[in-house]
Amino acid sequence: MHNRISGIFVALFGIALLFFVIPYQTEAVDYGWLKPATLPSIAAVIITLSGILHAVCPRGRIEFRLSSALRALLFFCIGILGLCMMTINYMMAAPILMLVLMWVIGERRWKWLFTGIALLPACIWFCIDFLLKRPLP
């Protein structure tokens, strides 16, 4: 069932590309052999057709479990928040990101928490900012 849904979804994505995204996100040129939209359109057609084919006769394994996907999404969101904090200051964001990630995973041992939260960001700062003189965000 998941297979069929994914096939339908892929086919819809291909159609959306073909009719909505490609015309608006490419420029028309009036000369030359390979137009900017040519290859993307071919790819979109291939995606659509294969998606339909897959929805009609689905094959292959699926390893999708909602519970672990939601948990992965949680870590994804933590990562994004870390990224947002980095736009302000890297040296503030990195330890907080590490703390939250490690805490949510369930790490409570001080030794490892200290390594991840203090030692690692300090090490990165030392190598990149101090030794190599490349600015961190």
Binding site: G7, E27, K35, P36, A43, I46, S50
Partner: peptide, 27 residues
């Protein structure tokens, strides 16, 4: 079918940016 979808998506993502012939921006 799934393999071809993957290849198509990879190809599509590779076309993001300036097109090779006319250097017009895409996606």
């Amino acid at each position: 079918a799934k393999g071809i979808v993957s290849a198509g998506l990879g190809l599509l993502c590779a076309t993001v940016g300036l097109d090779p012939e006319n250097s017009t921006p895409r996606f």
